[in-house]
């Protein structure tokens, strides 16, 4: 894994790679895809990577590629990050995102218009060259909604 460097010279903290999350991390780094898991026994879709289904405890699970789209459940604007790599990029936007596939995750939202985020805003994974800037799946706003 390469060390991504934001503008102020500090590298972003690197996710710890384990046998459980390796497939997930590689899918993001090599293909820009977000993988979640789904249970073959009860069809529950879940994130973060686990060795068994948190609902029925079956170990018969598989990786499920997502379409990269989701909606904002809740969010915060972080003005005082806990790592210097993020200082030059405040406010850092963190959102709880309900993916189209059903699982929800906490993820970063980037882009010039990021502070326009609202509950129910539609998000999509960053694409193209932006992908390689971020060590974990990262989203941007598609459009706004004020519901």
């Amino acid at each position: 894994m390469t060390k991504e460097k934001p503008s102020n010279g500090h590298a972003y903290p690197k996710p710890k790679e384990t046998s459980l999350n390796r497939t997930f991390l590689e899918a993001w780094h090599k293909e820009g895809k977000l993988l979640v898991q789904s249970c073959k026994n009860c069809n529950h879709v879940f994130f973060y990577p686990r060795p068994f289904c948190p609902k029925c405890f079956s170990i018969d699970i598989r990786w499920l590629p997502t379409n990269g789209h989701g909606k904002v459940l809740s969010f915060t604007l972080i003005h005082r990050p806990n790592h210097p790599a993020f200082f030059a990029e405040v406010p850092i936007v963190l959102a709880e995102i309900a993916l189209d596939e059903g699982a929800s995750l906490l993820s970063r939202v980037v882009g010039e218009n990021r502070t326009q985020i609202r509950p129910n805003s539609t998000l999509t994974l960053v694409s193209g060259d932006m992908k390689k800037n971020y060590p974990l799946p990262t989203f941007k706003l598609v459009c706004q909604s004020y519901s």
């Binding site: 915060t76 972080i78 003005h79």
Partner: peptide
Amino acid sequence: MEQYLNARLIAEP
């Protein structure tokens, strides 16, 4: 109270 309400933002709110 003013000092509390006007303290710098950490993570909104």
